[in-house]
Design a protein around this nucleic acid. Structure first.
Lengths: 230, 230
DNA sequence: ATTTTATTATGATATATATCATGTTTAATG
DNA sequence: CATTAAACATGATATATATCATAATAAAAT
């Protein structure tokens, strides 16, 4: 799949520090127009199609951002802390969330009034410019996943996801996976049974090791080849 | 496929008038740092992975924006005139085009120096805000296509594309299609043969009429049902 | 602890869709 | 205008992947 330098990944590198570009007064404005909310594991943070009154910033935790479908959802990204979510709701003429978000672990989210956020964008061009950067990073990520899910077959898609979880979310070759096989299937657009079967294939081939919820990537170059081959 | 209010569409409504937000001096700056280039039919306007020295604005014509794959490309959008392209290249740390663009008809493109464009973003927050709107509209569009291609099967995907071409690009139930069946296959992520077969199915069922390159949508409600059913 | 429920697992079967082969029509080219 | 190439068309076959059925675990709840 020779698409120059794109390996599909569920999350991104970009250090979402945009608030450092605000003045003290602007930061005060954010603080006075935002609330911190604690979500438990498996709670919904926002619902696709509902009114978007706020932008969300994950202070702590892990969530999935997904499109609701019947019978299956499509997970767009797994998002760790220090990330902004709900930015696409900033669109004049559409005040609703494009996607749903729910938590994998206990999560702390800062909800920022969308009107204040818009005001900051309109008055602080450097802040605005940073947000454009973040949006573009998300777009790049989204396109590469789009490509992965539509052009690669099962093994390639699962390899992509495993590599990404390891690199971007858990930053280690071994990690405890809070996602179920069903989540992995929503992430790779395949059936849950296929996820299970391919995980077993990878295990039998000594590419990964699985015991319960622990996953270890044993042969990353091989996973990369599977990803590249499709 | 009950995804609230999303029918996948290849192009967008948003009237890409962002230049009206520039001052006379800023507009002069754009004019003095941009060039008009004429492209013939089937010419490449930009190449995925190459250095992005400019933002593109289609003054006239019709193009496809696509990710290159082997053996098949993935067309992200069909884009008509008065549209900005190449915005995702505005990302610090990545100065390359995310996608390739090529023309379907003779096309006039304004190439705007990306440094100037960035400068305008950094100095004119309303301009910047408008660009954020455009990016978000693109994202919404991209997600709904993402959903269509990963969750629906062939008939639903093709119905989506036909409805969109009619509504957004040609703004008529009857139109001359400059895209080949192979383009439709890159747009729907299916084989060319499948496109041909399903077009025939639709024709046999009196849902559409085809003669050579002319397409007429005869039964739009039925197409919508096919789209919704997946 | 014991029942209930969700998750993981695995084999058998069905099916959507791609691939291959081959022919026909349309468009491009010398 | 003839020739070549490209696009369209259609049937036969292959295959990737989903679906269904049925267990075995593991987790949650009473």
């Amino acid at each position: 799949m020779p698409i120059s330098g794109t390996d599909s990944c569920v999350s991104f590198d970009f250090d979402t520090t945009c608030f450092d570009l605000l003045t003290t007064e602007e930061m005060d404005l954010v603080n006075s127009h935002s609330v911190l909310v604690n979500y438990k594991k498996n709670e919904m943070v926002c619902k696709q199609g509902s009114f978007a009154s706020h932008i969300m910033y994950i202070e702590k935790g892990l969530v999935k951002i997904y499109l609701e479908g019947n019978p299956k959802d499509l997970i767009l990204t797994i998002t760790p802390e220090k990330s902004l979510m709900g930015l696409p709701a900033i669109y004049e003429g559409n005040y609703t969330f494009l996607y749903s978000i729910s938590t994998y672990t206990d999560t702390v989210v800062r909800l920022i009034d969308i009107q204040i956020f818009k005001q900051l964008l309109k008055q602080n061009p450097l802040f605005s410019y940073r947000i454009i950067n973040i949006l573009n990073e998300n777009t790049a990520h989204s396109y590469s996943r789009f490509f992965s899910l539509t052009q690669k077959q099962l093994h390639g898609r699962l390899a992509d996801i495993l590599l990404c979880l390891s690199r971007k979310i858990f930053k280690s070759e071994a990690f405890e996976l809070p996602l179920s096989r069903s989540d992995l299937s929503d992430l790779t657009s395949m059936s849950t049974e296929s996820v299970i079967r391919i995980m077993k294939d990878f295990k039998d081939d000594r590419i990964i090791d699985i015991s319960n919820k622990s996953i270890t990537l044993l042969d990353i170059p091989r996973l990369e080849r599977i990803s590249a081959k499709g």
